[in-house]
């Protein structure tokens, strides 16, 4: 998921207040920024929304990698619009996090100093045009699995951001699948590219949901607070069940020899991804971690004079206006 392995923060407020707060959530009320909330709820949300926002922004990079190489004018426009949407998603989410009392700049600093994470998936490289298909189809597909239920999350600003995001997401997965269809029905080389992209993105996509958290106390607390709606395994299973027929339709093979329909459970059985690799990627040892962070740091550092320059001009203008009044 875009927010992976979110540990719930401890909270030690008055039990009566906590119970009242929990009752509000259980009644389906939304918690708004000015409402009282446990410190742990607030801090956990900052971490989760912040990580989600960072993922959208870092997530621009692997797809942005192909904007200047898109094969047609129309594909270029679609891809650019899609990557631009992700910037918008980052913006909405940073704003939601800001209602909890942390600034976007502070969150950015935390991303850049490594104290906040972003989704593991964006540390994988995009090597061919088919990867634009695979990312839209699988990565956005997996993200949507998580984001649709999050529209019902207990924190008002987060919920509203997710509603807006989900509206915009609907075209992302489709444009990805559309690319895959073209490739799968194209020349032998295009078919090969499509299969290769699926081979490389299948397991990293399964990792997006995070390791099994059925036993996790953090998960239980976050679910009680309704900032997590489903377990990781539920969502992963749902994703597999949805994706397998789509791959079959494309005539592509999911790179899992043990994948098969289980009539008893009514679900597909599938192999777990390599969780060692997942933790390596989270630790910083994914194929592209260094590049992704370099790109973000460069944008931030080299943008400083622009942000300061425009602000200085705005202040001068205001000062001149005040003096004239």
């Amino acid at each position: 998921m875009y927010a992976q392995m979110i540990q719930s923060e401890k909270t030690d407020e008055d039990p009566r207040a906590l119970a009242e707060f929990q009752a509000r959530i259980d009644r389906g009320e939304k918690i708004e920024p000015k409402d009282w909330m446990p410190e742990g709820y607030r801090r956990t949300l900052i971490r989760q929304i912040g990580q989600h926002a960072h993922s959208e922004i870092v997530g621009q990079l692997p797809e942005g990698n192909w904007i200047t190489r898109a094969p047609t004018l129309e594909r270029k426009a679609i891809l650019l619009a899609k990557v631009q949407d992700e910037a918008g998603h980052g913006l909405y989410l940073y704003c939601a996090a800001e209602t909890l009392g942390i600034s976007r700049d502070a969150l950015t600093e935390k991303l850049l100093d490594g104290s906040m994470k972003y989704s593991s998936i964006f540390n994988y490289p995009t090597l061919t045009w088919a990867d634009m298909g695979a990312v839209g189809w699988l990565v956005d597909g997996a993200a949507i699995m998580n984001q649709v239920p999050l529209q019902r999350t207990s924190f008002g600003p987060y919920s509203r951001a997710m509603i807006r995001i989900c509206k915009e997401e609907s075209f992302h997965q489709r444009q990805g699948y559309d690319i895959m269809m073209k490739m799968a029905n194209g020349t032998p080389e295009q078919r090969r590219m499509a299969q290769n992209a699926l081979d490389r993105f299948w397991y990293p996509s399964l990792m997006m949901f995070g390791p099994s958290d059925a036993e996790s106390v953090h998960s239980a607390q976050n679910m009680a607070w309704k900032i997590k709606i489903n377990t990781n395994d539920e969502l992963r299973q749902k994703f597999v069940d949805q994706t397998v027929p789509q791959a079959e339709y494309l005539g592509l093979t999911i790179p899992d020899p043990d994948l098969k329909w289980n009539a008893e459970t009514g679900h597909y059985d599938f192999s777990e991804p390599d969780w060692t690799e997942f933790f390596d990627v989270l630790k910083g040892d994914g194929p592209c971690n260094a590049e992704r962070m370099e790109a973000r740091r460069k944008a931030w550092d080299e943008g400083a004079w622009v942000r300061e320059g425009l602000l200085a001009h705005a202040r001068k203008k205001r000062a001149a206006k005040t003096a004239a009044e």
């Binding site: 407020e13 207040a17 708004e32 000015k34 800001e98 209602t99 909890l100 009392g101 008002g156 600003p157």
Partner: peptide
């Protein structure tokens, strides 16, 4: 327990 963090007051999202 009203949060004392001024930012919270400054940013009612709705």
């Amino acid at each position: 327990y009203d949060p004392a963090r001024s930012k919270v007051y400054r940013h009612p999202t709705f």
